Computed example of a mutant assay.
Amino acid sequence: MAQIHEFFARVDWTGARKGATTDYKTYSRDYDILIDGRSTIKGSAAPPFLGTDDRYNPEDLLLASLSACHMLSYLALCARKRIKVTAYHDDAWGKMEMKDGGLRFTEVILKPFVTIEADGDLEKAKTLHEDAHGICFIANSVNFPVRNEASVMFAK
């Protein structure tokens, strides 16, 4: 596998259609994320930062990226170890607060809930979450702790 991977995204501020940035409290924070060949993601600032709650915001997307990266890393490890995952969901949580003079994420907790086939190795399925965390590209790229509180159970 190549050791360098490049990714490209275009972000267009669509809020300009509603007027210029003449006042901090009233300009539109709406934007589109465009990646060739994919559906457009409609974004805005989070409501506490004067955006709207009907669009994705950067904080949502960061949390979702951490969750998705962990899930994909975990599923890959399970496939390699022949652990048959039949369901997976994560109720991820993140906290932002003032630190070192600025507002920033200070922690994220991933709460994956995994179901494996009844003949699987439950203990191995649990420990693979630690391994997945170690290889998750996104978790290894942020400067705050990303913890896991995983649950694994057998399918019924």
Rank of each mutant, 00 (worst) to 15 (best):
T26I: 04
I109A: 04
A155T: 13
Y56G: 04
D54A: 11
D53N: 12
S151R: 13
H89R: 15
R38E: 09
Q3V: 08
I83A: 02
K25L: 09
K25R: 15
G43R: 01
H129A: 00
I83C: 03
A46Q: 04
H129Q: 07
T26A: 11
A118W: 05
D90W: 12
I35K: 03
K42N: 06
F49I: 07
S73C: 08
D54N: 14
G102D: 03
P47H: 07
P47W: 05
D121Y: 04
I41R: 01
P145L: 14
G15S: 13
G101D: 10
Y74C: 02
F8D: 11
A87Y: 09
A20Y: 04
L72R: 06
D53F: 00
S39N: 12
E149K: 13
T106E: 00
T115H: 02
R55W: 08
N57E: 06
G101P: 10
L103G: 01
Y74H: 12
K156V: 11
A155W: 03
I4V: 12
G37I: 02
D90Q: 04
R17Y: 13
K156Q: 14
D60V: 00
L122P: 05
E149Y: 04
W13T: 12
M71I: 01
I83F: 04
A87K: 12
E117S: 13
A87F: 05
R17D: 15
D100H: 13
D100S: 13
C69T: 02
G94A: 09
T14L: 08
T22D: 08
L66V: 09
K18S: 06
I4K: 10
Y74I: 11
M153E: 14
N143H: 12
Y88I: 00
V11M: 09
N57A: 06
I33H: 02
M153C: 11
Y24C: 02
P112C: 08
L75V: 12
A9W: 10
Y74N: 05
K95I: 12
I109S: 03
A150V: 11
P112I: 15
E149I: 09
F154L: 13
D30N: 14
E107A: 01
E97K: 00
K18F: 15
I135G: 01
I41Q: 00
L63E: 13
T14P: 03
D91N: 10
S28L: 08
R80W: 11
G120V: 01
E59C: 01
Y56F: 13
I109E: 00
S67T: 14
V146W: 00
A155R: 04
K18L: 14
A125M: 05
R10M: 05
I109L: 11
K18W: 04
A150Q: 09
A20Q: 09
D131G: 03
P48A: 11
V11S: 06
L128C: 06
K126I: 05
K25H: 11
F8M: 10
C78W: 08
N148D: 12
K25S: 09
T86F: 01
E149M: 07
I135W: 01
K95A: 08
A150K: 03
A79Y: 10
T21D: 02
L77N: 08
F137E: 08
D90Y: 12
T22P: 01
T52L: 06
D60R: 01
A118Y: 02
V114R: 03
S65Y: 06
R147L: 15
M1V: 14
I35L: 08
S39E: 07
T106L: 05
I4F: 10
N57V: 04
D90H: 10
K18R: 06
H133R: 11
